[in-house]
Design a protein around this nucleic acid. Structure first.
Length: 575
RNA sequence: GAUUCCGUAGCUCAGUUGGUAGAGCAUCUCCCUUUUAAGGAGAGGGUCCUGGGUUCGAGCCCCAGCGGGAUCACCA
């Protein structure tokens, strides 16, 4: 690893501090009695409370002017100017703490604790007057620091912003330090989850945990990640959903259960898809999907209010209003609304013809349900910006949903669509075990025909249904999708702290290099132990010395079974 | 997967028909006691993503690869 000049300098500063008897990474706690947000909000009202403060954070900028300096301190709650004066930091003859430690050995990015008092500068900025400071952690890597100014309208303008998406996602910690709006986004995500949790707890539903490692994956149509348990010597799957487990709990006698679940799907990635994502699933006994729609409306409206203080949320150029009640369309109505075609009574052949007319791509494997779904997806979904419930999906697409109480071929199912994307999915749960078995069997048929996402038959789940599942309404809400809308984020990566990325760099594995040069496999560990990392290292020492070293290391590593190389052999590596 | 754009200093980015590698910030030295993108004077810092090719000469042109973004298609 090649260190930059600035990194080397910071390492030297670290040893300078140690030479001065200052531990750059002290162990003892640093008492903090206030944060920046608190000062900004309350100092003007209650100045006497801020005569003796102790605060810690990261040094974000410095303006040194001879024997006085201004700097900026950032803690979790915000940023504030701090003021240093040499003769206050160092009241005695010895000016080391200011002249050397502060001016020379401190850098932007260092974490410090300060004691002092709050005051207002001549230019009217609330600042902290530093009486003493302490280094709490030395930072060895320079931060991509963002400077900010305000234009005439008072808008904050960033300069040299840290914007490279790759760097931001790979080094989220840096992103969080220098881009305060990123912290806000993730706080909102947590408030969103908390709001849902409180909402469900208030209604008496029980938060539960169910297996992530599952012997049979189910509850959704998706490709799973597969792994293996050594002791049991069996395959296991990372869950694609937790639906079937939560329904087992309803069978067990709980009237309402929910779980915030990380689910895993081995599928494509995009700005809407990450291999692992979060859903909250909720199941409530003795309810149906109509009831669940009311719950979703109320819950999501409450989220908007909690996060924004209003039901109106700005997303891109649009304003989305989550105020109840939301528009409700059956799928047929939605299609008729957007295409002018009433497909509710059409046969499979007529549907095919309609799809072709509407330029909806189809293929011969598609049945009636799939055709309807395609037409909807192609012609309607993207146009639904304001939150809208779409109800009554084709039953073929919903193998875990109850058949519609009155409409042939449909299921009691709804999705809420918002900003052109599904944010939740819900149905009256299928609780007829015989029907459920048949639906699974139909899925098996699809699987045999090569549908990789077809569901697998879960005998234990069917057994649970046979004991009796009360009529139940179920719901799944995509937390990431909802968080994207609620935080005005364009990509799922912006609402996941650590989105999935390709590995950073192919580490050049020396053993591969050596193997290519014709080194016997068993000798490679010896070379690595000798500190050789590439072929140049081999070429840089005399062949005879290399030969001696290898034989010596072989002995040291007690590799009796390995034959020493010959001189010719060693020579051949370098050639 | 398809299309398309990008990769130059620690950061943000310029770089002309192909002719010695540039700016601002950051860093270092000096000056400066209320500054605020502080200021003034000076200095250091580069595998121009990698590997080939064309050329007297490549950051620039060509080919291949790596990494990333955006858009589109399937899944939430």
């Amino acid at each position: 690893m090649q260190l930059s000049e600035q990194e080397l300098r910071r390492r030297e500063e670290k040893s300078e501090l140690e030479k001065l008897g200052i531990n750059p990474y002290p162990s003892e706690l640093f008492e903090v009695n206030v944060n920046i947000k608190d000062i900004l909000e309350n100092y003007e009202k209650q100045k006497t409370d801020y005569k003796n403060i102790s605060i810690a954070g990261r040094l974000m900028s410095r303006r040194i002017m001879g024997s006085a300096s201004f700097a900026e301190l950032q803690d979790e709650s915000g940023k504030m100017q701090i003021y240093f004066r040499r003769d206050d930091i160092c009241p005695d003859e010895d000016k080391t703490m200011y002249n050397t430690v502060f001016k020379k050995l401190l850098d932007i990015g260092d974490i410090i604790g300060i004691k002092g008092y709050v005051f207002t500068t001549q230019t009217g900025e609330i600042s902290i007057y530093v009486n003493e400071f302490k280094i709490l952690a030395k930072s060895l890597k320079p931060l991509p620091i963002v400077k900010e100014t305000k234009d005439e309208q008072g808008n904050v303008v960033s300069h040299d912003a840290f914007t490279d998406p790759e760097q931001r996602y790979r080094q989220r910690y840096v992103d969080l330090i220098v881009n305060p709006n990123v912290r806000e986004t993730f706080k909102k995500r947590t408030y969103l989850v908390n709001t849902i949790r409180n909402f469900l707890n208030d209604r008496g539903y029980l938060e539960v945990e169910t297996p992530i490692l599952q012997p049979i994956y189910g509850g959704a149509a998706a490709k799973p990640f597969k792994t293996h348990h050594n002791t049991l010597d069996m395959p296991l799957y990372l869950r694609i959903a937790n639906e079937l487990y939560l329904k087992r709990l309803i069978v067990g006698g709980f009237d309402g259960v929910y779980e915030f679940a990380k689910d895993f799907r081995n599928e494509g990635m995009s700005r809407f898809h990450n291999p692992e994502f979060t859903q909250v699933e909720l199941y409530v006994a003795y309810k149906d999907y109509q009831w669940m729609m009311d719950l979703v409306e109320e819950m999501v409206e409450q989220i908007a209010l909690k996060l924004h203080g209003t039901t109106e949320v700005k997303v891109g150029e649009k304003v989305i209003n989550f105020q109840r009640p939301w528009k409700r369309f059956t799928m047929f109505e939605a299609i008729e609304h957007f295409t002018g075609v009433d497909i509710s009574k059409m046969s499979e052949e007529e549907l095919k013809a309609t799809a072709k007319q509407l330029n909806v791509p189809i293929d011969d494997t598609m049945g009636k349900g799939k055709l309807i779904d395609e037409i909807f997806g192609e012609k309607c979904e993207a146009q639904l910006i304001q939150p809208t419930f779409i109800t009554d999906y084709p039953v073929e697409m919903s193998p875990l949903a109850k058949k519609h109480r009155s409409k042939e071929g449909l299921a009691e199912r709804f999705e809420a669509i918002c900003n052109g994307k599904e944010i939740c999915n819900s149905f009256s749960e299928l609780n007829d075990p015989i029907d459920q078995r048949e639906r699974f069997q139909a899925q098996l048929e699809l699987g045999k025909r090569g549908d990789e996402e077809a569901m697998v038959l879960d005998e234990d789940f069917l057994r649970a249904l046979e004991y009796g599942l009360p009529p139940t309404a179920g719901l799944g809400v995509g937390i990431d999708r909802l968080a994207m809308i609620m935080t005005n984020s364009n990509s799922i990566q912006d609402v996941l702290f650590f989105p999935q990325m390709k590995p950073e760099k192919k580490a050049v594995d020396p053993s591969v290099l050596f193997a290519k040069a014709g080194v016997r496999e068993e000798l490679i560990p010896i070379l690595i132990n000798l500190g050789m990392t590439n072929l140049e290292d081999l070429a840089n020492v005399k062949t005879s010395k290399l030969f001696n070293d290898v034989c010596g290391m072989r002995k040291k590593m007690k590799l009796k079974d390995i034959k020493n190389p010959t001189m010719e052999e060693v020579q051949s590596w370098v050639d």
